[in-house]
Measured scan of single mutants.
Amino acid sequence: KKPMSASALFVQDHRPQFLIENPKTSLEDATLQIEELWKTLSEEEKLKYEEKATKDLERYNSQMKR
């Protein structure tokens, strides 16, 4: 599977709780709203997800070399 971006990892982490809190929201709308939240994060908060994305890219690259 392809590597995930930092923002995609953020959405993946936050979507389940968002949908619990907003059960009538469609998956598409939830994703859009969480992506807007991503844009408001500080660089420090984004760094955690950027590090995860880097590790996921390394995983992807090692799988492609096999």
Results as ranks from 00 to 15, higher is better:
Gln33Glu: 09
Lys55Asp: 12
Pro3Trp: 02
Asn22Ser: 02
Gln33Ile: 00
Glu51Leu: 12
Asn61Gly: 07
Leu32Glu: 09
Trp38Asp: 15
Pro3Asp: 13
Ser7Cys: 05
Glu43Asp: 14
Ala8Leu: 05
Thr54Ile: 07
Lys1Ser: 02
Tyr49Asp: 01
Ala30Cys: 04
Glu35Ser: 07
Lys52Tyr: 05
Lys48Ile: 05
Ser62Arg: 11
Thr25Leu: 10
Glu44Val: 10
Gln17His: 01
Lys39Trp: 02
Pro3Ile: 05
Thr40Leu: 10
Lys52Val: 06
Glu44Thr: 09
Ser5Tyr: 01
Leu47Pro: 00
Asp29Gly: 12
Met4His: 13
Tyr49Thr: 01
Ser42Thr: 11
Thr40Cys: 15
Ser26Trp: 00
Phe10Glu: 02
Arg66Gln: 15
Leu37Pro: 00
Leu37Lys: 15
Lys55Leu: 12
Lys1Arg: 07
Asp56Glu: 15
Phe10Tyr: 15
Glu35Cys: 06
Glu45Thr: 07
Leu57Val: 10
Tyr49Glu: 00
Pro16Gln: 13
Met64Ala: 12
His14Tyr: 12
Gln63Ser: 07
Glu51Gln: 13
Gln63Glu: 13
Lys48Thr: 07
Leu41Met: 09
Asp56Ile: 05
Thr54Pro: 04
Tyr49Phe: 00
Leu37Gln: 14
Gln63Met: 10
Pro16Tyr: 07
Pro3Thr: 14
Pro3Phe: 15
Glu44Arg: 09
Glu51His: 09
Glu35Gly: 07
Glu44Lys: 12
Lys2Val: 07
Glu45Trp: 01
Asp13Cys: 01
Leu37Val: 09
Arg66Ser: 12
Thr54Asp: 13
Leu32Pro: 04
Pro3Leu: 03
Leu57Ser: 09
Ser42Asp: 13
Leu47Asn: 15
Arg66Glu: 14
Lys46Ala: 03
Lys52Asp: 04
Leu9Pro: 00
Lys1Thr: 04
Ser62Leu: 12
Tyr60Ala: 08
Leu32Asp: 05
Lys55Ser: 12
Glu58Lys: 13
Leu32Thr: 06
Leu57Gln: 10
Lys2Ile: 03
Leu9Lys: 13
Glu51Lys: 08
Ser26Thr: 12
Leu47Gln: 01
Ser42Cys: 06
Leu47Trp: 09
Asn61Ser: 11
Gln33Pro: 02
Leu41Ser: 12
Met64Pro: 10
Ser5Arg: 05
Lys52Ile: 01
Ser7Pro: 15
Lys46Ile: 00
Lys55Arg: 11
Leu57Glu: 12
Leu57Asn: 07
Glu45His: 09
Ala8Phe: 01
Lys39Pro: 06
Lys39Ser: 11
Asp29Tyr: 06
Phe10Ser: 03
Glu35Asp: 00
Lys46Cys: 02
Met4Tyr: 11
Asp13Gly: 00
Leu9Met: 08
Glu35Ile: 04
Arg15Phe: 14
Thr31Arg: 11
Ser62Gly: 09
Glu51Ile: 09
Glu43Lys: 06
Glu44Asn: 04
Tyr49Met: 00
Met4Gly: 07
Lys46Gln: 10
Thr25Lys: 05
Arg59Thr: 12
Ala8Lys: 14
Pro3Asn: 14
Ser42Ala: 11
Lys46Arg: 12
Leu27Tyr: 11
Pro16Trp: 03
Ser42Arg: 06
Ala53Pro: 04
Thr25Ala: 14
Glu43Tyr: 10
Arg66Cys: 10
Leu57Ile: 09
Glu44Phe: 05
Thr25Glu: 08
Glu43Gly: 11
Glu35Trp: 01
Ser62Met: 10
Arg66Trp: 06
